[in-house]
Structures are given as structure tokens and as C-alpha cells.
Amino acid sequence: MEQIRIHGRGGQGVVTAAELIAIAAFNEGKYAQAFPNFGVERTGAPIQSYARISKEPIITREQIYNPTVLIIQDVTLLDTEDITTGASKNTIFIINAPKNYTLRTKLPSKKVFFCAATEIALEIFGKNIVNTVILGAFAKHSELLSLESLKIAIQEKFKDKGASIIEKNIKAIEQAYND
């Protein structure tokens, strides 16, 4: 079972990111689960969300303690919170930071991938909303989802938000995927 833990801040779309992963995995014929964990419901407060992908039905509802993938939407969280708890040498890290970024924290794994999601988000949306952007990097480096099924998930999830939003989000994940 793949266990994906996402760390970010309130307002960054942390919960939506986990939901998109689950929708995309389900569309690929797998079992999937996603659920949130807000500390307090406040913009800017640290938030976690979880997604599981498996070939078997997923019945456990415990939070994710040993992530196989850790997505970090806000790199400053690494300095203030112990967000790498439970990660191992096999955990894949997808971090929103420029390519040449130097981490101040030592990570347990060498599978660390940077994605300049903020840069891409500012360029495409004019706002620092990185949740979909970073999923492009997630699909590429974890190989758990195809870019195509992510795009379909975005169309499904954002269908009430209009064509322009969907188009921008798809452009953003493509850019992150090909980066």
C-alpha cells in the first residue's frame, strides 16, 4: 500500500491535493482513500492530509505514520515542525522549492525532488496556490499516477469552477511534470 502524507498550510489546498490523488488512482482502477487533518481551521496554520493507494480495499483509517511519499508544499515547515516523522530511507520527498535550494534539515532519504511550484503558481495563477502544481512533480517522481489520470481528476474535481480554472491547473501540472 502506498501512503502519501501532504504537509502545507491552511489555504494552500492541502486537502484538495490528497483528494485529487485518490480520484486519479481510483480512475486508474485502484483502491484509494483520502482524508484531512486540520489542526485549527485557520489560513496559514500547518495542515496535513493523507492519501492511500492500494490494489486491495483500504479499510484502516489511522493517520499516516510511515509515509512512502511525503509532499511538502511549504518548505519553511521543515524548519518549524517535525514533519518528517516516520519517513524512512525509502520515502520519496517532493518539496516545493527552487532546484538549487539548500535544505537546512537532514532528510532520512536520498530520494528528494524539488519542484519550483510557487514560481509556476505565481506565473500561471498569480497566487501561491501550489497544490495541483506539485502533483505534476509527484506523478513524475513517484510514478504512482499517470499525468493523464491526474488531468482527468482535475477536470472532475474542478468542473464547477469553470473551463479557465481547469485549463490553468492542467497547464500548471504539465509544467511541473516536464520541469
Binding site: A18, A22, I23, A34, P36, I58, R61
Partner: peptide, 10 residues
Amino acid sequence: GFILTHSYEP
């Protein structure tokens, strides 16, 4: 609450 109301599953 949340565990079922806010989770996604098949």
C-alpha cells in the same frame, strides 16, 4: 465526523 464525512473512498 471528518473520518467519514470528509474522506474520499470508492
